[in-house]
Amino acid sequence: MTLAPGFHDVPSGHLAAVVTHLQMLDRPPARPSPDLQDLSLIKHETVAPDWYRDMFRRIGQDYLWFSRLHMKDADLAQIFETPDYDLYTLRKGDDDLALLELDFRKAGECELAFFGLDAALIGTGAGRLLMNHAIDLAFTRPITRFHVHTCTLDSPQALGFYVRSGFTPYRTEVEIAPDPRLTGDLPESAAPQIPLIR
């Protein structure tokens, strides 16, 4: 369904976001990133659901990430046990501080399914480092398209960061979903920059 020009009411207890879809069809030139020797890229072969939900909530709560929080353990396990789905973190000491998920389940493509940093890494250059890893990992496989989407609930820097990384916007949508602060998936104090309208 295509929305007509003008204003459209959002149901009570819901959020509306403009979603931008981006893609890169060729590997872009590498962009320099800082030498953060205290961070290691870790591939997780097994994923404990409680550990994952904690990580997902910690990184995404300020941007109202909620899609994985209400999934059953078996459904989460099914995603991460798929051979063509990879989960990585950036680790400092014993702490995992960034999340990278690459979905190769569609032949010839890779979706940057989730990409985010713990607040402790924002502004350090770790995002550039993680994106360089993501591009390298995506294009080591025989793909012709690497794609991602972001929305107006994400960090205001996200869209520009993806464009600078080599992605090109190609489509927009409007998404309406229940506010996760009212469903109990996230605390009502999450994302104070986004109005909570009951």
Rank of each mutant, 00 (worst) to 15 (best):
A74Y: 05
R57P: 00
Y63S: 00
L39K: 14
D96Q: 12
L99P: 01
R58E: 04
S67R: 12
D86R: 06
W65E: 04
Y85S: 07
T46C: 13
D84H: 11
L100H: 04
L39Q: 07
L64E: 00
V47Y: 01
L39G: 12
S67C: 10
I59L: 00
G60Y: 01
L99C: 01
L97Y: 12
L100D: 05
A98S: 10
E81C: 11
D50C: 00
F66L: 09
Q78N: 08
Y85K: 10
F80C: 13
A98N: 00
R53V: 01
F66A: 09
E45K: 09
T89M: 05
K92G: 07
L99H: 09
L90F: 03
T82Q: 11
P83K: 11
S40V: 13
R57M: 03
H44I: 15
F56W: 12
Q61D: 00
L87F: 05
I42K: 04
D75W: 11
D50Y: 03
L102N: 08
M55C: 03
L97S: 10
L76C: 14
L100F: 10
F80I: 14
A77S: 15
M55Q: 12
V47E: 10
G60L: 00
A48Y: 11
M71K: 14
Q78H: 12
W51R: 10
H44S: 08
D86M: 11
D50T: 04
D75T: 08
F80L: 15
L87E: 05
T46L: 07
S40A: 07
L102F: 03
T46R: 05
E45W: 09
K43S: 09
L39A: 11
S40R: 08
L39Y: 10
K72F: 10
H44N: 15
F56C: 04
Y52E: 00
I42T: 06
T82F: 13
L69D: 01
Y88F: 12
D94R: 11
K72C: 08
D95Y: 09
D96G: 11
K43D: 15
M71A: 05
A48R: 03
L39M: 12
L99I: 04
Y88N: 08
P49A: 02
W51Y: 08
E101F: 06
L39C: 08
F80G: 14
K72D: 15
E101K: 02
P83E: 12
Q61A: 04
T46K: 14
T89F: 01
A98E: 04
L76T: 06
D96V: 13
D75I: 12
R53G: 04
I42V: 15
E101V: 07
D84L: 09
Q61R: 01
E101P: 03
T46D: 01
L41C: 07
D84I: 14
E101M: 12
R57T: 13
A98K: 00
L97G: 10
R91W: 04
E81Y: 13
L39F: 06
K92R: 13
W65A: 02
L102T: 00
Q78L: 14
R58V: 02
Q61M: 02
D73K: 08
K43R: 03
D86Y: 07
H44T: 06
Q78R: 13
T89D: 02
A74Q: 07
Y63N: 02
L100V: 06
Q37H: 13
D38C: 14
H70P: 07
K72M: 05
P49M: 03
H70A: 13
A77R: 15
W65M: 03
M71V: 07
D50W: 06
E101G: 11
I42E: 02
S40Q: 10
K43F: 07
